[in-house]
Write a protein that binds this DNA or RNA. Structure first.
Lengths: 203, 203
DNA sequence: TTTTAAATCTAACAACTGTTATAATTTAAT
DNA sequence: ATTAAATTATAACAGTTGTTAGATTTAAAA
């Protein structure tokens, strides 16, 4: 069947595309945007630089694809984690989202890390478009915090914008950690939730 | 006097050196390590690339000087802020350090930002040495937190290592903000202190 | 003013960059 | 087995990179 074969081809095509993006993400995390050449990427894919142009229009479009996926992947994981327990109270939902965010960032792939690490130094036009994708993801957090505020679980005089960035900041900064052995996303989410919601004060 | 003249020369020399580092720091923040060429730096200094070698041995030694200064500057400011009110209680000292850290990062120069933004992508040997400098600065925070714990101001079952990175993470992530108008380092430090120490919960 | 030293420029180097057109090869369809 | 399509490799392009040696300029010292 022609239809089946063509479908198979497209899947192989997408598979190669995804493989290239995987290796690119890893290199972007490790070395950064300007320090990663197309020949580096090609070598990591057992290819030659010119061959990459069969799958991507340019280095920048490849990098943009990787970094966009970095956000949408975290977003999808957070949403699906929230959907798994839809009846939870607002604060529990925040904790769930934190664990999903951390878990995807550390255990799932290099896409999210690549986004976070390279965002500031990527060409301006890419950055502009990524800002929109970022914004859509952050809207999830805004909504989570607003719901917690509406239900009276969060102090009414606290700036939610600041709180949102505090949460995202401490989570994303874990990429700079030497992760302590035995402490996975789950344990870190526990501690962070406790710090940000209950505070470190007292005993 | 020969001695005086030579001293003046050395000061001019250091002034130029510092000027080069200033411009480099700005470019590193904006464009990153691999995206910033010596010709870019030279142009920003109204010089030609080759002339930079009179002041620095290489691009990497220039970058390392900038990034090292990024830490020592924040460290110096935090220490001097702490020394200004030595009798404060442990928690107040933490708040003081937070405001100093944020203030230096945002209002004083680009050195700290350059360090934070480029650390992950700088050549491995530079990164190794920077880790030591970083470690010495972070030791200040470890000490602040331990003192607060000893005095009974911080929950005894909370991992201080995690708390330290949570604080540093949320502060450093402010570099990614569009800073809300009217909110300076002082206001952000207030909110962060309240979030991390008292928690966002309740009303 | 002459001499000496400090600071910058010039021009080139080999290596590397993203990108392209074209050829070679692999894979699937007939 | 032949043909057609999909995928990768080749080889070159113009431009950029960090770096260097040597000439040139600027400023200070005698």
């Amino acid at each position: 069947m022609a239809a089946t074969s063509r479908k198979k081809d497209e899947k192989l095509r997408d598979l190669t595309r995804r493989m290239i993006m995987d290796r690119t993400a890893r290199l972007l995390v490790k070395n950064g945007y300007g320090e990663t050449s197309l020949r580096d990427i090609a070598a990591a894919c057992d290819m030659k630089a010119g061959s990459l142009y069969y799958h991507f229009d340019s280095k920048d479009s490849l990098v943009e694809a990787v970094m966009t996926h970095g956000v949408t992947q975290v977003e999808a994981d957070v949403i699906s984690a929230l959907d798994a327990t839809p009846a939870d109270d607002p604060l529990s939902r925040i904790r769930t989202a934190m664990e999903a965010h951390l878990s995807t960032l550390h255990d799932r792939s290099d896409y999210g890390s690549a986004h976070i690490r390279c965002f500031a130094h990527v060409p301006a036009d890419i950055r502009r478009r990524l800002r929109d994708v970022r914004g859509r993801y952050e809207a999830i957090w805004t909504r989570l915090l607003e719901e917690a505020r509406t239900s009276g679980d969060i102090a009414s005089d606290l700036d939610l914008h600041t709180l949102k960035f505090a949460l995202i900041g401490m989570m994303n900064w874990t990429l700079e950690w030497r992760l302590p052995t035995g402490a996975g996303p789950r344990e870190i989410a526990d501690q962070f939730f406790r710090i940000a919601l209950d505070g470190a004060r007292r005993g």
